[in-house]
């Protein structure tokens, strides 16, 4: 075919509001006060973070809140060097961080480090590195009230 194939451009724009439910609502209100709350399973006794309404292992409903530390250990990390639609300007890093007092890890940004040289970045961030939360000055009750975790 000689003529250019027609393509119709389209962007989906549909507004949503996601329900946090009772458990996460409590968590986010506490987070606004700079307290990180986990939830303990009555059966396996693990303190789960992020908190959730049921333990996926024991299949029991959860309600016992436990405050955990805002300091913990990196369990896995990555350093992103590519620009994605809607994501931060590269380079940036994220990781799984197990906070003291919790049995499971949360995913968060790892920051406060110069990542422009990836070799140096890898030196600063390692599996096992201890990190601490850096809080936002104007918390809104969102997970990003913690701006990132930084090595201590």
């Amino acid at each position: 075919m000689e003529k250019d194939i027609i393509e119709v451009p389209y962007t989906w724009e549909i507004p949503f509001k996601y329900t946090a439910g009772e458990v996460l609502t409590k968590f986010f209100y506490e987070l606004k006060e700079k307290r990180i709350m986990g939830i303990r399973c009555p059966k396996c006794k693990r303190v789960l973070l992020p908190p959730r309404g049921f333990c996926e292992m024991c299949f029991e409903p959860l309600e016992e809140w436990v405050e955990v530390s805002d300091e913990g250990v990196i369990g896995a990390f990555q350093i992103c060097c590519m620009k994605f639609l809607g994501a931060p300007e590269p380079p940036w890093a994220s990781g799984l961080i197990r906070l003291d007092g919790a049995d499971t890890a949360i995913l968060h940004f790892i920051g406060g480090i110069d990542l422009s040289d990836i070799e140096k970045g890898k030196e600063a961030i390692k599996i096992g590195t201890r990190v601490k939360a850096v809080w936002s000055d104007a918390p809104k009750g969102l997970i990003t009230d913690i701006r990132y975790f930084t090595p201590v």
Partner: peptide, 11 residues
Amino acid sequence: FFFRPIASNNL
């Protein structure tokens, strides 16, 4: 709530 705001994707 937790993964999306941390710019997660499959890569």
